[in-house]
């Protein structure tokens, strides 16, 4: 599902708070300057884009267990597959 990865990365790219042309799958969200409110907005944007629900509790360490860009992409891919 390369298109899912691309879309998710485009959404994350818009939230990035550090000077970076291109983000990579292995980038850590915290290294990209995403703070907790950014992460909540990111989850919302992804849910809206794919019409899915990502079960996330902001009280968990690394919001929803998402440490890297790849973690978000894989979670979305799973949920999109499940929906299809």
């Amino acid at each position: 599902m390369p298109d899912v990865a691309q879309d998710v990365m485009a959404i994350i790219q818009k939230k990035v708070r550090v000077d970076r042309d291109q983000i990579a799958m292995e980038d850590k969200l915290t290294d990209l300057g995403l703070e907790s409110l950014d992460a909540l907005e990111l989850v919302f944007d992804v849910e809206e884009k794919f019409n899915i629900e990502i079960p996330v509790n902001a009280n968990d360490a690394n919001i929803g267990g998402f440490q890297t860009v790849a973690d978000v992409v894989h979670a979305v891919e799973k949920l999109v597959t499940k929906k299809a």
Partner: peptide
């Protein structure tokens, strides 16, 4: 719910494994 700060079951202030 959208803020993702609520615990699903019980409120456990100051406890380990608290969920919100």
């Amino acid at each position: 719910e959208a803020m993702r700060v609520m615990a699903p079951d019980k409120c456990r202030p100051f406890s380990k494994d608290r969920k919100g």
